[in-house]
Design a protein around this nucleic acid. Structure first.
Lengths: 385, 385
DNA sequence: CACTCGCGGAGAAACGTATCTCCAAGGGCT
DNA sequence: AGCCCTTGGAGATACGTTTCTCCGCGAGTG
């Protein structure tokens, strides 16, 4: 019927200014009800294809764009995922400072978008302001410290949290981490096989999981093989401190004949320090550092690096989070971990399901005693090409 | 059917499960109206301090968190800003690939948070899906191409857009860019003064503003001083292609005695190529490249770089955008550019207000003839000062 | 013929907040 | 005494969706 005029029933249609078209306008223009429009556009109800396409066409003609805010309010889902890094001090962002974070964030963003979610970058130390003003379906937390208040708050709010880095004592829904212990042990073995007698460590003073687990693994290994630990620790966010620490390590009376550096810039710093002390690499000093950068392929000599494969981590973290978001009856805010799809659970136990991902050791000249100097099959790294 | 539903007016209070507390619950618990709670929490109405603090306390006790979605729907503001990079092909993200983007994004994120907004990273090429599902108060667009459909769409939706990179023909609210022409001319003059007779350019094949303006400035300069242009172009996203192009440039019969490389990795590529051809830097070849990385401070020799100061750009872009968002009566979706605060307008004209920001040339050894060697007036290029 | 059943679709109730309008009471002023 | 103004606060509505419920109707079916 000619319902076009009064379709809105009690709505004061006259008050509509030049605002954007709403679903009501589409309904009126197409001569159907709001329900039908919603169903047609979302592919939901039982409608003949003809109605569906007609509605779609009208919507297109009016330039109709559904209001994300209204949809979020109604459905309880925003399609937004928070990404935050909590450790490493108060400075706005260590993102991109360490290549690991940059790569990881990029992969996470990509993975999220592939599943229809977008990532919001948030600082852990932000005024409650920003966190409270954003409707988040879930959050990725990078390396939460023990008892992280932010994670607790999110948990209380019923927001699923997946952490990159095995959480100390936080109620996370799930977590993903590298097998840092295996990685360090692998490197130490690798160096030993290359002839190292005393392996030193360049580590950090912060208490994040990565630093802690790696250092513990080193100390444990030392105890096992009966080597006195030789290490220097420095605040990892301070690039200058790294160079100084590298220097200190090589200046010690019990100077190591091999060093593993836990952080990205350690490789060049150690190389520079070695040069200062007249040490040749790898002849007098074997070198390995953890880095995602390929500049170490072109240093002189090229340096063996451990890659944490941040892309894989980022992708996995996001997928776990979205699985949690979509796998849960979002009404019940309680004990999301219990409702988590069982396939992600760790073997037998209760508390949050975690996944350990392997690392990759990229063996270059710095960790191999000069063989015949040519490229005749150097010893291969354990599992990689 | 069920008559026992109605308790508080018409609301079926019994249906409230274990959901989170809403503003109504706070109002009930505090014995005041919803209005009062809202006013008290937002510091808005006229209320005695006593009422205000009492309401706040009750809200705290109930763990009340306002719904961001509802607030967004009501106020029309989400506190979310989109960040997108449109050029450089289809790959998910060139973010962090070039240090410029990484730095710029970081600064933008920081600036936004400082003003209470959060950044959402979005790909320009995304399915309309994601863009439509997010309530954005505005968008930062990095380097939009001419007639960018994304920008047009945003404009039509009434979303303010500020671009990093002078837009070709897009309805942006404002833009920020470096003074690329001045930068290139400055470098060319710098190289001339250092004794260069024939300056080459390593540029890109893409059509983004940066590449275009820089190349044009180079060609213009060549025409003015009467030098035959010597340049090689390659697809900037392909790192391998860069090395090849650098090699090509130095292999030419009309080999330049100075080169400016527009992209970050060009410095090391050119250095490597020079080495292959037995050219000494800076003696036989002067080198400058555009980069934000400080690795060029430690190359052998250190390389002069042009910094685009991405942090300043990112900060400025975001501040302009937020000014636009907050300075406009968001009801009227029309012609936001007109309503833009006049102080940001360019001198006389109409179309979108833009800001040119200076660059910074960091002079290192690669662009200076060794002092003792040729300190005395090398032959000057024809028409130069 | 009375009935069920599937189809196509309409109505209206939320979702949770911000805000506009309006009201009551008390006190100062002319 | 009548009036206005300020203070403190309540009611109701709108924001724009999604979705649950329900309804009419024509066609099979016993």
């Amino acid at each position: 019927m000619t319902a076009a005029a009064n379709q809105s029933g009690r709505r004061p249609t006259t008050s509509r200014r030049l605002e954007r078209a709403g679903i009501r306008d589409v309904a009126a223009a197409a001569g159907v009800s709001i329900t039908t429009v919603s169903d047609a556009l979302n592919g939901k109800g039982r409608l003949p294809d003809e109605t569906r396409s007609r509605v779609r066409e009208v919507a297109e003609r009016l330039g109709y764009r559904p209001s994300a805010a209204a949809r979020t309010l109604r459905t309880g889902r925003s399609g937004l995922i928070g990404l935050t890094v909590t450790t490493y001090g108060e400075e706005p962002f260590t993102f991109t400072e360490f290549a690991y974070f940059a790569e990881m964030a990029r992969a996470a963003t990509s993975a999220a978008l592939g599943r229809g979610y977008a990532l919001v970058v948030l600082p852990a130390s932000s005024r409650h302001d920003v966190w409270g003003n954003i409707a988040l379906d879930g959050t990725v937390v990078i390396d939460p410290p023990d008892q992280d208040p932010l994670v607790s708050e999110l948990y209380r709010s019923g927001v699923p949290v997946v952490s990159d880095g095995k959480p100390g004592n936080c109620p996370v829904t799930a977590w993903v981490d590298n097998d840092h212990e295996a990685a360090v042990l692998g490197i130490l073995d690798h160096l030993s096989e290359a002839g190292a007698r005393r392996i030193g460590l360049l580590t950090g003073t912060s208490t994040d999981t990565y630093t802690r687990l790696s250092t513990e693994a080193y100390l444990g290994w030392c105890a096992k093989v009966g080597q006195e630990p030789v290490y220097e620790a420095y605040p990892a966010h301070d690039p200058a401190a790294g160079a100084v620490a590298a220097d200190r390590l090589l200046a010690r009376p019990d100077r190591p004949d091999a060093v593993y550096g836990l952080f990205d810039p350690n490789g060049t710093d150690l190389l520079a320090a070695a040069r200062r002390y007249g040490l040749r690499v790898p002849d007098d000093l074997l070198l390995v550092c953890c880095s995602e950068s390929d500049v170490y392929a072109t240093t002189e000599p090229p340096i063996t690096t451990l890659s944490l494969k941040p892309r894989r981590i980022g992708t996995t973290v996001v997928n776990l989070l979205i699985d949690a978001i979509e796998g849960v009856d979002s009404g019940t805010g309680v004990d999301i971990a219990r409702l988590f799809p069982p396939r992600f659970r760790t073997a037998g136990t209760g508390p949050p399901p975690g996944t350990l991902m392997p690392t990759e050791l990229i063996v270059r000249a710095s960790s191999q005693r000069r063989s015949p100097r040519t490229t005749v099959s150097p010893p291969r790294p354990p599992g990689e090409v």
